[in-house]
């Protein structure tokens, strides 16, 4: 580079940012984030401090609260596993097979994202009630979904499905088929190739989808309360118990459950970040 060029470039290189607006955009971002998200979250996190450890523990360690947490997280884990299996199958069919109406089917996957949870709730409730379209059939086999813990599971499977499909689908789409061809040339059957070559490459995506599904399902409220029957210690989810306690002006009890749920969100967010870093390294 000529001396003149350097002379002109020097001030540009010295300045940290060529583009204007750094302070404005970062300042607004931090202000908006802090005032609307971080400070309110802090208000929740600081509540147990005013309660004291004993008070906090007292608010959590009641059979009803523990049962609701167990139900929310237990069923969310089950829903995440079920959705991961079906999500993988759906992603496989959408990426690998060609059939008419594929675009429509692909669009429908996001229905649980787009449909308000209250609408999903009353629809699922009417569907699985003993006189509903599906409930009517199941009741003949002695299976009750509505107003039981299984209602919680069905609603969670519904709302979490898109996460598992949408995380696996793009990864599967970008996967080169050369390794599969190599496996086939080396004498592997199609099933061996899928199980030993393709699936291991999808593991990070499947786990990411499952974690997102779990996080969403554990915190879900709207679609579940219509279907679950909300019997305390049986089919009462943790978010509902927060609302119940708020309605009784039991702020301490509501906050204690809220803190546990928030802590679980943080853990899952960290797990997701870890998963993504791991997946990036593997790639």
């Amino acid at each position: 580079m000529s001396a003149i060029g350097l002379k002109f470039a020097a001030p540009l290189l010295k300045r940290r940012h060529v583009l204007p607006g750094f302070r404005l955009s970062l300042g607004f971002t931090l202000f908006y984030l802090t005032s609307l998200v971080l400070i309110p979250l802090l208000a929740l996190l600081l509540r147990p401090v005013s309660l004291g450890f004993d008070g906090f523990w007292h608010a959590i360690a009641t059979p009803r609260v523990l049962a609701s947490l167990r139900l929310s997280f237990g069923m969310a884990a089950a829903a995440a596993v079920i959705d991961s299996v079906f999500g993988l199958v759906i992603a496989w069919v959408l990426v690998r097979y060609r059939f008419p109406g594929k675009g429509l089917l692909d669009a429908v996957i996001d229905l649980p994202f787009a449909l308000p949870t209250a609408v999903a709730g009353i629809a699922l409730s009417s569907l699985y009630a003993p006189n509903g379209w599906v409930g009517k059939i199941l009741i003949e086999y002695g299976i009750r979904i509505a107003y039981t813990p299984w209602g919680v599971l069905v609603a969670m499977i519904f709302i979490s499905l898109p996460f598992t499909v949408r995380t696996v689908q793009p990864v599967l789409g970008e996967l080169g088929q050369d390794v599969e061809e190599a496996a086939a040339t080396l004498g592997a059957t199609r099933l061996q190739t899928i199980a030993k070559v393709v699936l291991p490459m999808l593991v990070p995506a499947i786990l990411t989808g499952a974690a997102m599904a779990l996080a969403r399902a554990a915190g879900e409220y709207g679609s579940i309360i219509f279907l679950a029957g909300n019997i305390p210690a049986v089919s009462e989810i943790a978010p509902l118990l927060i609302i119940t306690k708020l309605e009784q002006y039991d702020y301490a009890g509501a906050s204690a459950i809220g803190v546990v749920m928030l802590a679980a969100s943080f853990v899952m967010l960290l797990a997701l970040n870890g998963l993504q870093a791991w997946a990036a390294k593997r790639r």
Partner: peptide, 29 residues
């Protein structure tokens, strides 16, 4: 910063409502 921006996605909607009650409610800040 990117992680914090994503945070509201993993917070239960009910907890999202609760935090504003703790800030602006009768017993709140």
């Amino acid at each position: 910063l990117v992680t914090l921006i994503d945070l509201p996605f993993s917070v239960s909607p009910v907890v999202a409502g609760l935090i504003y009650v703790l800030v602006f409610g009768a017993q709140g800040w």
